[in-house]
Design a protein around this nucleic acid. Structure first.
Length: 467
DNA sequence: ATGTCC
């Protein structure tokens, strides 16, 4: 037996050496050449069956790894030209975000996409990007804050019946903000999501259950907030009479748990796609039918449910402190991937900072710390992959905002609108965001406005510089 | 977005 016999069977690279070494082993045991060649063909045909074989295990395990890599690289070259996609509010979107979306539309797994009017640059896929892929999921197509979401509770309380001081005190007592933060032991409350069996189904999830439990019911940093405000309905909807109500609006995500899930699977995806370079590097994907693809899908969906559980507890604590039950509650995730039929085909639709807006579907689109947010109803626009913006979108990056926006301008903006702010930073200044009215106007074909929320008392994490 | 490297 020599290398020629083995390469003739189709073994490549390191597999040649491993096959040869196994063959010599069998020869030494007196097995005939033709029998050995048949054994090698059998291992080749079904490596899984030989993973524990005394002679062929190393070869079998290597063949399996080769097959996985080949599977991951299947059709791996980028298209020369991006697939066409529609853009809403193009004049509000900078070139860099458009270029990121172009790169995403060149991936071999991409089938359709759209850019929302709040779009701006992110890692990999731009924020405000919607991307449909076939049989593959991109961790950075969902983003770091997996399951980041909104929730609104409309309360059976006259607006104005809760004074500013009381609202400030309620927010300080019943919400917690910031990286690594959880409720203190005596104030901690659990949630059924923490009892799901899913946590036991992956090593990574078992490992992160403690952190998730510590941080449940809290808000993060950056653009996350919890606020009291007035909710105005011009006509009866949501089971409510027209009028102005006291309401709570929150923006929160999956905290450290989701961030670590994102980090882990992004590394796995990048390892699988070492050939991806430049702007495409962060768009590395996982085949959905691979162990890692399934693992990400399971962890991502758990992070989505966990993020909504955080909102549940935020709203439960505040409602209970006021001694009321919400009249209506609305929520939606805007950083997640869904299985969705697109032109009759089931695809994976990534929304990274985009609100699901199927026909009739309710959603929440916030403005900024001192600008209105809107309850919207989707119109199911096919070219937008049934999506809308997730907010106003950044106009200035965090650093640019710190450098350009004077603190007194932010204070004046807040004062003009009668907004009281706890925490917050210049990087979250209203002046750093696009005008929400412009963004809503650009997507009138994607959503109808149902009602309007005006923030009055806002709590955020403390930014780099307080306002 | 995240105790910004499992």
């Amino acid at each position: 037996m020599n290398g020629k016999h083995v390469t003739k069977l189709g073994f490549e690279k390191q597999a040649v050496g491993l096959a040869l070494s196994a063959a010599h082993d069998r020869e030494a045991r007196g097995v005939s050449r033709s029998a050995i060649l048949q054994e090698l063909r059998d291992v080749q045909a079904d490596p899984d069956a030989y993973l524990h074989d005394a002679t062929y295990a190393p070869l079998a395990s290597h063949l399996r790894a080769q097959a996985r890599e080949a599977h991951a690289r299947r059709g791996t070259a980028l298209r020369t030209e991006p697939l066409p996609y529609d853009v809403w509010g193009a004049h509000l979107i900078d070139t860099a975000a458009r270029m990121q979306m172009d790169t995403a539309m060149r991936l071999p797994i991409s089938r359709a996409g759209a850019l929302m009017p709040d779009a701006h640059v992110g890692y990999g896929l731009p924020i405000g990007g919607v991307l449909a892929t076939e049989d593959a999921v991109i961790p950075y197509g969902v983003g770091v804050d997996i399951g980041c979401s909104m929730m609104l509770s409309v309360l059976p309380i006259q607006h104005g019946a809760v004074k500013t001081d009381e609202a400030v005190s309620l927010l300080k007592r019943h919400t917690r903000f910031g990286a690594g933060v959880g409720f203190e032991r005596k104030a901690w409350r659990g949630h059924p999501v923490l009892d799901e069996r899913t946590w036991q189904e992956q090593g990574l999830l078992r490992h992160l259950h403690g952190k998730a439990s510590d941080q449940i019911g809290t808000s993060g940093s950056g653009n996350h907030f919890v606020e009291f405000g007035t909710f105005t309905l011009d006509q009866a909807d949501l089971g409510l009479e027209p009028g102005t109500y006291l309401a709570v609006l929150s923006h929160s995500g999956s905290r450290g748990f989701g961030a670590q899930v994102a980090g882990h699977y992004t590394r796995v995806a990048e390892q699988l796609h070492r050939h991806l370079e430049g702007p495409a590097k962060k768009l590395a994907w996982l085949p959905l039918d691979s162990d890692d693809g399934q693992g990400y899908w399971q962890a991502m969906n758990l992070a989505g449910r966990y993020a909504l559980a955080n909102h549940d507890l935020i709203h439960a604590r505040l409602s209970e402190a006021l001694g009321v039950k919400p009249l209506a509650q609305i929520s939606n995730s805007h950083n997640l991937a869904w299985k969705q039929h697109v032109n009759g085909q089931e695809l994976i639709v990534h929304r990274k900072g985009a609100t699901p807006a199927a026909a009739g579907q309710l959603g929440l689109i916030p403005g900024s710390m001192a600008d209105p947010g809107f309850v919207v109803r989707g119109k199911g626009h096919a070219a937008a992959l049934e999506s809308a913006s997730h907010g106003a979108g950044r106009q200035l990056g965090r650093k640019a905002a710190q450098a350009q926006v004077p603190k007194r301008d932010v204070q004046a903006y807040l004062q003009d609108r009668g907004v009281t702010l706890i925490g917050g930073g210049i990087d979250e200044a209203p002046q750093a965001y696009k005008r929400i009215e412009d963004v809503i106007r650009e997507q009138r074909d994607l959503v109808d406005v149902v009602g309007r929320f005006d923030p009055k008392v806002v709590r955020m994490d403390t930014g780099n510089e307080d306002i």
